[in-house]
Design a binder for these strands. Structure first.
Length: 195
DNA sequence: TCGAAGATTGTCT
DNA sequence: GACAATCTTCGAG
């Protein structure tokens, strides 16, 4: 297993962190065991001037983690039933984060299958931001926690070369839809959706 | 206190 | 491809 990514990894441009998180490994321990996967899709959300970023409404109880130190987790609840996890990036007056949108399951696949009974194929286990949180057992208990120690950590993985990185507009949002801030691994079957 | 919207998913046509 | 499920958060009244 690769080493755990330190805080200074996250203390850079959000686009750079989004790009370099591709190929890294998201790992989560719960009482049920360990589950982990390779990050194959991310999106950048950049500060209060990004209308699609939660921080666009300013500093509130919900967005508080975005204003905290880089390298922390920002876990939020959406649509009354789903959790999504972000890695907070450079936050000097610029509350921004990287949404992790899809994983290629790597460790604890039997446990992941138990947590994702609706998944018909292995591709469906974690190919979406809420799916991967369910797969790894991530919820509000992890909100605001540092990503350098368990239960949730991100490790270095195999590098993804530039020619294998695809950049497109973000999906599933209704504001600032044209900004090219979505990153995913070319041809990887575990990416949530290809345009 | 009330109402509206949301970084989604799964099911049905 | 369309739509329901479901509830927290936030701002207005």
């Amino acid at each position: 297993m690769g080493r755990i990514l330190r805080r200074d990894f996250y203390d850079r441009d959000t686009e750079t962190v989004s790009r370099e998180l591709l190929g890294a490994i998201l790992e989560c321990d719960t009482k049920d065991g360990r589950a982990a996967g390779i990050i194959v899709e991310t999106e950048a959300y950049i500060g209060e001037h990004d209308a699609a970023c939660h921080a666009a409404v300013g500093r509130t109880r919900r967005t508080e983690p975005l204003y905290g130190p880089p390298g922390n987790a920002y876990v939020y609840f959406i649509y009354g039933m789903h959790w999504c996890i972000n890695a907070v990036t450079r936050a000097e007056g610029l509350p921004s984060a990287v949404l992790i949108r899809a994983l290629e399951p790597l460790t604890g696949v039997p446990l992941i299958r138990l947590r994702r009974p609706k998944a018909r194929t292995d591709r469906d286990l974690a190919n979406g931001p809420a799916k991967l949180c369910a797969a790894l057992g991530i919820d509000d208990r992890m909100n605001g926690l540092p990503l350098q120690r368990h239960p949730v950590v991100i490790r270095a993985g195999d590098q993804v070369t530039d020619s294998n990185v695809v950049i497109t507009p973000r999906i599933g949002i209704s504001r600032a839809e044209d900004w090219p801030l979505r990153y995913f691994v070319r041809g990887n079957p575990f990416v949530s959706r290809t345009p």
